[in-house]
């Protein structure tokens, strides 16, 4: 499959702080690519490098097979992006903002296209209001609308769901899935594990500017075991220690027992406890990606 984005040993430092360190990864055509990392891990800097907002100190960046530093102007016609906050000219209406950006991108039939994208992101009816009167969620939608204006082949979105209410989150995720189905390659940065887990097909994990892992979400997570916490009675520990579950037991804290299990083993463990007449008050487990991320980075994220 064709690599739409390819970073080769890219490095970027701001003074003594190395934001991106020898970073290499690829986004393939049709990917809904999750770019995951804690705050300050270098995600935004990487996306700025990809969109030409900052210049790499070393390494090479290829988009659609062409080197970004040599073909920026042509490549920008094929990319739509929303980097960091959705900032607009507050003294202009949403429509006027889109008109300006459409003209800069050389969009034909501007008015019809603006109507289309406004409808797509659910901003129809508010387009003539000044942007300074928009809520954060509305600006975020307008940010996605401007990124889609010129029908890009690659969409680069930096934390596009930050600050959205649950309905907004759902709408944007639906929209991203819909766009991916239309063949648009999407590179989505996020610190939300649940987001990447739910919608991404492939992903990369970055920490302190370095790449920790990349691959398909299914591949990276399939072999993962879950950390399962079971709250039961005080006698259950003795029963379990004399069974095959002893090998999976990793910690015991009063009535709370921790196991490392595959997803399929959870009902088996529940059945075992039930069979030995130990009540189960609660079973919880960390999501696979959360556990995987924690193991790789040593950083806990709240999803």
């Amino acid at each position: 499959m064709e690599a739409i984005v390819s970073l080769q040993s890219v490095r970027k430092a701001f003074g003594r702080i190395v934001a991106v360190d020898e970073l290499s990864f690829e986004v393939l055509r049709g990917d809904l690519f999750g770019f995951l990392g804690p705050n300050g891990s270098g995600k935004s800097t990487t996306l700025r490098l990809l969109t030409g907002l900052v210049r790499a100190d070393a390494g090479r960046i290829f988009l659609f097979g062409s080197e970004l530093s040599l073909h920026r102007q042509n490549l920008m016609r094929r990319i739509g992006c929303l980097i960091e906050r959705p900032d607009f000219y507050g003294y202009l209406s949403g429509r006027r903002n889109l008109e300006i950006l459409a003209r800069l991108s050389g969009v034909d039939n501007t008015h019809a296209r603006i109507r289309e994208v406004l409808e797509l992101v659910g901003l129809k009816g508010r387009e003539n209001d000044l942007v300074k009167t928009y809520s954060h969620g509305m600006k975020q939608r307008l940010g996605i609308a401007q990124a889609l204006l010129h029908r890009p082949e690659l969409l680069i979105l930096d934390e596009p769901t930050v600050g959205l209410d649950p309905q907004g989150l759902h709408d944007i995720r639906q929209l991203l899935r819909q766009l991916a189905q239309q063949g648009i390659t999407i590179l989505l940065s996020s610190h939300l594990l649940s987001e990447v887990e739910q919608i991404a097909t492939r992903m990369a994990i970055i920490h302190q500017g370095k790449l920790l892992a990349q691959g398909s979400v299914a591949e990276l997570l399939s072999a993962r075991e879950l950390v399962v916490k079971v709250e039961t009675d005080a006698q259950a520990l003795a029963t379990l220690q004399q069974s095959r579950w002893q090998q999976s037991l990793i910690a015991a804290n009063g009535m709370e027992l921790q196991f490392q299990l595959s997803r399929q083993q959870i009902p088996e463990l529940a059945a075992f406890l039930h069979q030995h007449q130990h009540p189960i008050y609660r079973i919880t487990y960390q999501r696979p990606l959360e556990e995987y991320f924690l193991r790789l980075t040593g950083t806990n994220l709240s999803a």
Binding site: I79, R85, D87, F88, L104
Partner: peptide, 14 residues
């Protein structure tokens, strides 16, 4: 300061 420079600089014009 307002962040709109990002919008301009990520469009085709040099």
């Amino acid at each position: 300061a307002s962040g709109t420079l990002r919008l301009l600089a990520t469009r085709p014009p040099s």
